[in-house]
Design a protein around this nucleic acid. Structure first.
Lengths: 187, 187
DNA sequence: CCAGTCTTAGGACTAGGTACTAACATGTAG
DNA sequence: CTACATGTTAGTACCTAGTCCTAAGACTGG
């Protein structure tokens, strides 16, 4: 029976990590044990009751709201030919700009280009080693930035990706990214 | 008495918007009325009970988690001498890394450095014009990145900021940022 | 002064627990 | 086989933060 308990508790942890909103009663049904068993499990694992779990999630959110959001994958990739070419678009919103000037923060343009340079590489692991970048023109809220990446050199050691970002055909950003790939690296 | 009620209800709404975690009992004390009055107010205003309010906040957060966050001001500036030197720290967490490899995405390191280069400039408007950056070492979750920016050249036309980021004295990132400032630019 | 609004009080009930005691099943070691 | 440990289930009393409902005061304008 020992295995059963540990297994159940492991499952319990995983289940509540995915969805902290489940009551003991529902859990008891899920695992086909009594409510008391679930409570003992929670006690052993130091897992608080539903209401406390929910409160915890809610509090974390309130904290997060102060430290503002952005997308993880910056921009949306609309075309991708591995090791050749890729295109992504990013709409600049109020979140991306300096509130005083309305001009997009440089690191968002960099993030879009860098993300694209990583995405284009057909490998388990791609890392930026070096980059030379130019900001040609300011970008304002409401504008749509189209970034195009081209692999210009792909030796065994490293891959060079050139990224050009435009707003309405006008170049706003250009970067040359030296990328390392997992099958070529020592570091 | 009509004003008193409306006023209280308005205040109630505002109070709960700022902090949804307050119980009826605590509210009753705040407004110096009975708990029942608060409950009647909530009923009239269709405000759910604490536990439901908290649940709502928590659910919204779970939705947000899919569209991931990052800080607006990347890193925390701990020292700043305008046009001279500045230092910021950033703790790398799970949010900053590629889930497969645990290695921090390059644009976070860039964002920290770029933000610092912008902050160091004593001017209304500072923009990155060009940057040459090197990623010397991978940074993993749990590590603390300390970025130090130094203004190396400050002519009328442009300011050059060198940023060196370290983890435990070890250089992980270096960048040279050519910055334009508002009193020098045409664009 | 009386009606209508507002406020307060109290009782019965609920969900989702905690904390505790007690019974019982199962398995393993001596 | 007995004895003790581990695990499971059941039940009780109690808690918080409510809901829903009834009823009684308090205040105020006409």
């Amino acid at each position: 029976m020992k295995r059963k308990k540990k297994e159940r508790q492991q499952l319990l942890i995983e289940t509540l990590e995915k969805n902290p909103f489940i009551t003991d009663e529902a859990l008891a049904e899920m695992f086909d044990v009594s409510v008391q068993t679930i409570r003992l499990d929670r006690l052993e694992l130091s897992i608080p009751e539903v209401r406390e779990r929910i409160k915890h999630v809610a509090k974390e959110r309130l904290d997060e709201i102060k430290a503002l959001p952005l997308e993880e994958v910056i921009g949306e990739i609309i075309d991708l030919r591995l090791d050749q070419e890729a295109i992504s678009i990013m709409d600049i919103t109020e979140e991306h700009v300096f509130s005083r000037t309305g001009i997009a923060r440089g690191h968002y343009l960099f993030a879009q280009a860098n993300s694209l340079a990583v995405a284009i590489i057909d490998d388990e692991l791609a890392l930026t080693r070096k980059a030379t970048i130019h900001f040609h023109r300011q970008v304002k809220a409401g504008e749509r930035v189209v970034a195009k990446a081209i692999v210009t050199d792909s030796s065994a050691k490293q891959t060079v990706v050139e990224v050009t970002s435009k707003v309405n055909q006008e170049i706003v950003f250009h970067g040359e990214f030296m990328m390392y790939r997992s099958d070529s690296d020592t570091n």
